[in-house]
């Protein structure tokens, strides 16, 4: 694999957000888990009104607010665009949700662990049917 490593000096996303040279989990205060850190990668982040004007946020949290300011953005895209590992973004997003800056939208229940053997994705039949119809129209 030849992917750029996180924290490489001067690597930038299209928005000019400069990747940090700080070790990835330093921005979470060293935490690798949080109450909501199991948020799915496809979960969509919505910024609450007024949150963009918040003061005292870390650069990473400000960057998340900027990226999601106008439309929903998924956790996976935030990770790719900000060049932060998925686990870090999950923790930051969970923190920001607790702080009231953002809302997270998921199609499946969060924090419901049915084990890896479950056949239930948690997606309703109507959601699956609507996805199928949408793909058929592509």
């Amino acid at each position: 694999m030849t992917h750029a490593s996180f924290g490489s000096l001067g690597s930038q996303s299209a928005d000019g957000y400069e990747a940090s040279t700080v070790r990835p989990y330093a921005v979470t205060g060293g935490r690798v888990r949080s109450a909501l850190s199991d948020l799915p990668l496809e979960a969509l982040v919505e910024v609450m009104p007024g949150a963009v004007n918040s003061v005292g946020l870390t650069p990473e949290k400000r960057a998340i607010l900027q990226h999601a300011a106008h439309t929903y953005v998924s956790i996976a895209e935030l990770s790719a665009l900000l060049r932060l590992p998925l686990g870090v973004v999950r923790i930051l997003v969970a923190d920001m949700q607790e702080e009231g800056h953002i809302t997270v939208h998921t199609s499946t229940p969060v924090n419901v662990h049915t084990g890896h053997g479950s056949s239930h994705s948690g997606l309703s039949l109507s959601v699956l049917e609507s996805v199928l119809n949408g793909i058929s129209a592509l």
Binding site: L41, A76, E77, A80, S130, I135, A137
Partner: peptide, 21 residues
């Protein structure tokens, strides 16, 4: 270990973002 994952996205039916990991 660091694992890299490629992903893409396609909007279906106007209302649903389908992610492919």
């Amino acid at each position: 270990t660091t694992v890299a994952m490629d992903f893409g996205r396609v909007t279906v039916g106007g209302t649903t973002a389908l992610y492919l990991f």
